[in-house]
């Protein structure tokens, strides 16, 4: 088990190397001038340009820049964000918990929601009910999260005025304890709703297909022959077996969500990694962009590892193979 985890962690090393080199090359190739972006819409004085270029070693040859960066990363130094005037790692560590919070709460909503719909649609004996859920989930899933988010804002924040339109909390807050939690939840509600509903529809569609596959298996007939009730059969024999494909796909989706839900964070001005990434790309803050992308890649690798472990926990057949 430990050996397995260790081996998988080693696999991540070449992946991260490739990610870094790719990102470096791409950022090198795209047009745009980091110094100009730093200054803004003013002409850059030549002396200032030279100073900046020397300070951040922007004129070093490409290979020197890449290898310097790799050496620094190996030492745990992910560079300096000149737009934010802070270390890249600092900023990532500040932003990541917010993104993780958003993604976790959203999936905590999406998975039960999707499973409930999937099981309802997959086990129903009425073709109408199945068709209703299949169509509904498809339509809702087709709505992009940023638009769904805006609709929610228009209704719950602007029309009803129940919830804040954006942000992660009020500028000044004196709330403590339970009131503080409630306040946080009010800010979390709309982005989580948009994200959770969207992902929930994905979960529902996978779950439905998987449930239909499971209930056509022989052991469901055995369960019926035992005289179990419908509810008992679903709880004991359908749920676990049909969760297997779900773990793979939801795990992967969660991994990408950890890298920052770019659209959603932009719509709600949720100061997580997604928003950081968008801002950094716009401002040509290359070190920052690479840092966030590395974190996303690590998150996906880590989630895939967790998916594999979960899979083994759910399916004894896989445990034996290992």
């Amino acid at each position: 088990m430990l050996r397995f985890v260790g081996r998988r962690a080693l696999y991540a090393v070449p992946l991260i190397l490739v990610v870094i080199i790719l990102m470096f090359s791409m950022l090198h190739l795209i047009p745009g001038d980091p110094v100009q972006a730093l200054v803004g819409d003013y002409p850059v004085p030549p002396a200032y340009r030279q100073a900046i270029e020397e300070k951040y070693r922007l004129n070093d040859p490409f290979l020197v820049q890449v290898s310097n960066y790799l050496i620094n990363v190996a030492k745990g130094d992910f560079g300096f964000s000149y737009q934010n005037q802070r270390a890249v790692l600092d900023l990532i560590l500040e932003r990541a918990p917010r993104t993780i919070l958003l993604a976790s709460v959203s999936f905590a909503l999406a998975i039960p929601l999707g499973m409930a719909i999937g099981v309802a649609a997959g086990t129903t004996r009425s073709a109408g009910t199945d068709k209703f859920w299949t169509t509904t989930t498809l339509i809702v899933y087709a709505v992009p999260t940023f638009w769904l988010g805006q609709l929610l804002v228009m209704f719950f924040a602007l029309h009803l005025g129940w919830l804040p339109t954006q942000g992660i909390g009020p500028m000044v807050s004196r709330a403590q304890g339970f009131a503080w939690l409630l306040e946080k939840l009010r800010y979390l509600a709309l982005p989580v709703l948009a994200f959770g509903i969207h992902e929930g529809m994905r979960v529902a569609r996978i779950m439905r297909a998987s449930v239909i596959d499971t209930i056509s298996q022989g052991y469901i007939i055995t369960a019926r022959a035992k005289g179990l009730t419908r509810g008992q059969i679903i709880r004991r024999h359908v749920l676990r077996n049909s969760s297997l494909p779900l773990v793979t796909i939801a795990g992967y989706a969660f991994g990408s969500a950890l890298g920052g839900a770019v659209f959603l964070e932009t719509v709600f001005t949720w100061p997580g990694l997604g928003l950081l990434l968008v801002d950094s790309i716009r401002l040509r803050d290359n070190m920052m962009v690479i840092g966030v992308v590395i974190f996303s890649a690590l998150a996906v690798v880590a989630m895939n590892l967790i998916v594999d472990l979960l899979y083994a926990a759910l399916d004894p057949r896989i445990r034996t193979v290992r």
Partner: peptide, 19 residues
């Protein structure tokens, strides 16, 4: 559930829950 009829099937692997 009791004192009635029950059934065994051709393919025991498919008719037992693998998990």
């Amino acid at each position: 559930r009791g004192r009635g009829f029950s059934m065994i099937f051709q393919d025991p692997l498919g008719y037992l829950n693998p998990t």
